[in-house]
């Protein structure tokens, strides 16, 4: 098999509030023999908020982001659910509406770029499952996480809207009964925890304007994992991670309960199982201590 190469869209948090997510992505890619070409020219995806303000502008900027992946002739890998949503939504809209695509390309031409629609957009979680395969991961595990109950937290923007999401990867996923992250946990040797909140919202997007809603949703999610004997949670989304890790204390106050739950990025879990050095995975950047490593 030739070496897997992707264009990496890091998103904004990987370079600021979740540096551990960038570190662990790089460490896992190295272990898996994946080459990541970082899209250093890319802008923010708009995080679904710019879209509320100026939808056309967000389409132009995301088309520009994709155009850079196309220039490399590579599939774009995202490492944030919300980046995945906004960029794949842009692709979806432009690919099905030639008129809109032409309008966007008129703008991109001003800076010598073109959106063609030739690059796929896939979240790293599904890239691992589709292109590496769970069997291969299972073979490569050197430090099985067999003593851990691990609660998957899928994050809305990787599983909904399901029609869009299922265009981006081969692994069919239902938002009501998602299995990809459970399967990855099992491949890493862990026990996957079933709980009601695993496919629910963390509240991140209303953190500023509706702090109570945001805190209760986060609290419910952590409490659900705790009540089902999870030792840790794992998520493919850095925004969910920010809520579950940095806001756990607020969330506990909101639901009237002490919450204590280490939360790993999907890449950190895979990295641990594949034998990466914990230092490479940035575990010391968590607010809730990862105390079992």
């Amino acid at each position: 098999m030739s070496k897997l190469r992707y264009a990496l869209f890091t998103g904004c948090t990987a370079k600021q509030s979740t540096p551990e997510q960038y570190m662990s992505t790089m460490a896992v890619a190295k272990k898996l023999g994946i080459e990541l070409v970082e899209l250093v020219e890319a802008s923010c995806c708009g995080a679904s908020h710019l879209q509320d303000y100026d939808e056309f502008l967000s389409l132009v900027l995301n088309a520009r982001n994709i155009a850079y992946a196309e220039k490399h002739g590579l599939t774009m890998v995202t490492i944030c659910n919300t980046c995945q949503l906004n960029i794949s939504m842009t692709k979806h809209k432009l690919d099905k509406d030639p008129e809109l695509k032409a309008k966007v390309n008129e703008k991109l031409a001003e800076v010598g770029l073109e959106y063609k629609g030739t690059s796929q957009i896939i979240h790293f979680l599904y890239a691992i499952i589709d292109d590496i395969g769970l069997d291969k991961i299972r073979e490569m595990v050197v430090r099985p996480l067999s003593q851990f109950n691990i609660a998957p937290f899928y994050g809305c923007h990787n599983i909904r809207p399901s029609e869009l999401q299922n265009e981006t990867h081969k692994t069919a996923e239902s938002p009501y009964n998602p299995t990809s992250l459970d399967d990855l946990i099992i491949a890493c040797g862990g026990e996957s925890v079933d709980y009601e909140e695993k496919n629910k919202c963390c509240g991140f997007h209303v953190e500023l304007q509706a702090p109570k809603t945001a805190a209760v949703l986060t609290g419910n999610a952590i409490a659900g994992a705790m009540d089902n004997n999870a030792d840790m949670m794992v998520t493919p989304c850095p925004l969910c991670h920010l809520k579950l890790d940095t806001q756990a204390e607020h969330a506990g106050e909101a639901i009237g309960r002490e919450l204590d739950m280490p939360v790993l990025h999907m890449q950190q879990m895979v990295g641990l199982a594949l034998g990466c050095d914990p230092k490479e995975l940035g575990l010391e950047h968590h607010v809730v201590d990862v105390n079992f490593v």
Binding site: E41, A42, L57, V60, L61, R64, K107, V111
Partner: peptide, 17 residues
Amino acid sequence: SENMDEIQKLMKSSSTV
């Protein structure tokens, strides 16, 4: 981001609101 001039140019020309 690199090539900031592109982003700024596009933000000027594509802004609708």
